[in-house]
């Protein structure tokens, strides 16, 4: 098999060389081309044409360069302008994001939790009998000791009279039994919309005549996730 392949390759190479040698020209053919009449005049005509072409391209090359330069400059100006606009927009967006009010997350919206304007800024005001009395709560339960602690790092809520002037809130009503073991040093206040019908089940005295609709409430959630107290907000 290899011998046949070699033979075939040798034949191809021989034919290849023959093809190349067939290209050799005879002296007569060379002479016919070389002694072509007016050949030198044609060469001079070509030289003149090339010289004109080169002069023309040198001139138009200058013009092309200027046009190219102008195009490049205008392109650069446009790019610079676009970059400036982008920077301004970026700065404006950053400024707006910094100054815009906090928005509610989707999770919060789903469970009816409303953003409280002072939820993370103001500490939780411990619920005391005095605050409950001052707010005119429907019920003034005993204030568990843990919630009367002061001087802790608990978040303090503003007193009822210190809340937004547009809001009126009751005092905090304890929701769970709190003792020294279960007392919370810190927590969060979350504003929620509570169905009126649920108020009774939460231990909040509510009118039995009005069970429809929702009420706004601030709920104190301890670090352990247990709701500690609630107050109603109007």
């Amino acid at each position: 098999m290899f011998r046949n392949h070699d033979k075939r390759r040798a034949r191809l190479d021989r034919l290849r060389l023959e093809a190349l040698r067939a290209l050799e020209v005879s002296e007569a053919e060379v002479e016919a081309v070389a002694s072509s009449p007016e050949s030198y005049e044609r060469v001079q005509a070509r030289i003149a044409a090339k010289r004109r072409q080169r002069d023309e391209s040198a001139r138009s090359g200058g013009r092309r360069t200027s046009a190219w330069l102008l195009t490049e400059l205008s392109k650069r100006r446009r790019l610079a302008f676009a970059a400036a606009v982008a920077l301004i927009l970026l700065a404006a967006t950053a400024y707006w994001l910094r100054t815009a009010p906090n928005t509610q997350t989707d999770a919060q919206k789903q469970i009816g939790i409303l953003p409280h304007p002072a939820a993370t800024e103001h500490p939780v005001t411990p619920v005391t009998r005095d605050t409950a009395r001052g707010a005119g709560a429907e019920l003034k339960p005993e204030k568990p000791a843990a919630l009367r602690r002061t001087g802790r790092t608990a978040r303090r809520r503003p007193a009822p009279d210190q809340v937004n002037i547009e809001e009126v809130a009751t005092a905090y009503i304890p929701l769970t039994y709190i003792n020294e073991a279960t007392g919370a040093d810190s927590g969060q206040v979350m504003r929620i919309r509570v169905p009126r019908a649920m108020l009774a089940s939460m231990g909040v005295p509510a009118s039995i005549e009005r069970t429809d609709g929702f009420v706004l409430a601030d709920v104190v959630i301890g670090d352990d996730g247990l709701a500690r107290a609630i107050r109603l907000v109007n």
Partner: peptide, 24 residues
């Protein structure tokens, strides 16, 4: 120059063209 041109171009006019172009 004609001899070189004739190796590549077998038509006389093409070879002449190449000769003139080469000198230019």
């Amino acid at each position: 120059v004609a001899r070189v041109a004739c190796r590549f171009f077998f038509r006389r006019e093409e070879a002449e063209d190449v000769v003139q172009e080469s000198f230019a």
